[in-house]
């Protein structure tokens, strides 16, 4: 992230308190967004494991018990019980991911609005781009 204090440019446009607040808000959204994206990435990864597991369980033999990891220990579950537990876990992840997405969207809309306002005032003297999309 690069927020140049506009003064660095020499013949700066005066930064009023409202502008400073906008810059702050933008910076806040930006850090928050990065944080959320990290969390989202981790959750998606976990979710993928569960999806793989789902496929495996579809193919599994009915008679064999499944060793299902809950917390730090593995529990020997019957196939239906394991599927049920899996459904519960998947659902939890789905709702967590959805929640994070909503928060990320909030940040993005907020940033978009601020960008318009800040670019309108400072033009090229301010850089609000994060660079390549994460």
């Amino acid at each position: 992230m690069s927020l140049l204090p506009p003064e660095d440019e020499g013949d700066g446009i005066e930064v009023a308190w409202e502008d400073q607040q906008r810059i702050n808000a933008f910076s806040k959204f930006n850090t928050r967004l990065v944080d959320i994206q990290d969390q989202l990435k981790a959750k998606m990864e976990e979710k993928e494991y569960y999806d793989d597991l789902q496929m495996e369980l579809e193919l599994a033999d009915d008679a064999d018990p499944v060793l299902y990891k809950l917390g730090e220990a593995f529990f020997s579950l019957s196939l239906p019980a394991a599927k049920k537990q899996l459904r519960k876990d998947t659902k939890r992840y789905d709702s967590e991911i959805a929640g994070l997405r909503v928060k990320a969207d909030e940040c993005e809309t907020g940033m978009k609005e601020l960008k318009v306002q800040l670019y309108a005032k400072f033009g090229k003297q301010i850089n609000l781009e994060t660079g390549p999309e994460i």
């Binding site: 220990a73 593995f74 020997s76 579950l77 019957s78 239906p80 019980a81 599927k83 049920k84």
Partner: peptide, 20 residues
Amino acid sequence: DALLDGEEDEEAAAKPLTTL
């Protein structure tokens, strides 16, 4: 699913819990 695995579930629950 609940209908399908109802019986089996009870059976499984009665067994002691084996863990690693």
